[in-house]
């Protein structure tokens, strides 16, 4: 197990290095941010000073080396646009995205898996067909459109829920969270629902396919022949047997939603990192882009690591192979 962890840490380090190089080169290729940083009427002298100050006159490899040097000291640089340390900037936005993403992915899983299992267990019932119809909707209708429909219906027409923003927040561990206040929860509901629909559809389909397949196996027949109830069979046998693909998708979705909740955050003006990255791209705010993309890569590495560890917990056959 320890060897496995060390091996994964080394892998993670290599991946992070590659990502940093790719991101740096990619962002460098997008364009020179100096025009964005300075006002158009800046004199040539100021312009040259600024280029020097930011290090834009250095060759690419030198800039990258400087970046890595600062990185070792934990310094991702300052945002051009906000003129504050990038880590602090991202840190101020991340909790908003994190709570929205967690609410969406957990909600989708805890609702989608039982419903999907039911749909797989009783594929011909009307309820199952309704669940599947909703899942097709979740797959095929674009997120932004559903977001607009949600706002139109619940915020504009019915007036039940707010249309955007985080609402009131409360502090926990020195960070502002929306989910701690009723008003914040109300603000969170629509964007979380919007964000979770696709994931919900995916969980339903996964759980349904797994359950249908598993119900036909001899394991289930044998459990039935032993007199076990259908509830026991579904919760003790089937759920455990279909867990691996569900955990895999759960991890991937958690990572990608965290990274790319942009559309929903924009529609509901949710002040998360999604909006921040879009802004940083339009303004060529290099340090933010680089730090953000590296952070996303880091998320995926951590999530994949946890998912891999949980495989061993879920399937004992994988334990011996790794030991």
């Amino acid at each position: 197990m320890l060897g496995f962890v060390i091996q994964r840490l080394l892998q993670a380090f290599v991946v992070m290095m590659i990502i940093s190089a790719m991101v740096f080169v990619g962002v460098y290729a997008v364009g020179n941010p100096i025009d964005v940083v300075l006002s158009p009427d800046a004199t040539q002298q100021i312009r040259e000073q600024a280029i020097k100050a930011y290090g834009f006159d250095q060759p690419l490899w030198k800039q990258y080396a400087d970046f890595l040097g600062r990185l070792i000291r934990g310094d991702f640089g300052n945002s051009f646009l906000y003129n504050m340390p990038v880590l602090q900037l991202i840190g101020s936005r991340l909790p908003a995205t994190a709570e929205l993403t967690l609410a969406a992915v957990f909600g989708a899983t805890f609702l989608g898996v039982p419903l999907g299992m039911y749909a797989g267990y009783r594929p011909d019932s009307t309820f199952s067909k309704a669940v599947m119809a909703i899942s097709i909707l979740g797959f095929s209708v674009p997120t932004f459109w559903i977001g607009l429909v949600l706002i139109f219906t619940f915020a504009v027409e019915l007036g039940w829920l707010p249309a955007g923003g985080r609402g009131e927040t409360a502090q926990l561990f020195g960070i502002e969270w929306s989910f701690l206040t009723t008003n914040g929860l109300k603000h969170m509901f629509l964007p979380a629902l919007n964000l979770s629909l696709f994931k919900f559809a995916m969980m339903v389909r996964l759980a349904r396919a797994g359950t249908r397949e598993t119900m036909l196996t001899d394991t289930v027949r044998f459990a039935r022949a032993a007199g076990e109830s259908e509830w026991t069979i579904l919760t003790r046998h089937v759920l455990r047997l279909i867990a691996i693909p569900i955990v895999t998708v759960f991890g991937l979705e958690l990572g990608s939603t965290m990274a790319f909740a942009v559309v929903t955050e924009t529609i509901f003006s949710w002040p998360g990192v999604g909006k921040l990255i879009i802004d940083s791209i339009t303004t060529l705010d290099r340090p933010v882009m680089v730090a953000y993309l590296m952070l996303v890569a880091f998320f995926f590495i951590v999530i994949n690591f946890v998912v891999d560890i949980s495989y061993a917990a879920l399937d004992p056959r994988l334990r011996t192979r790794r030991a």
Partner: peptide, 28 residues
């Protein structure tokens, strides 16, 4: 009760056999 052809298909691979026996006992 019933015994099937292929034990690697009938026993649940992710549960200990103690757990599986417990489930069969608890059923009654």
């Amino acid at each position: 009760s019933m015994v099937f052809q292929d034990p690697s298909a009938t026993l649940n691979p992710v549960l200990t056999i103690g757990r599986q026996m417990q489930l069969a006992l608890e059923a009654h």
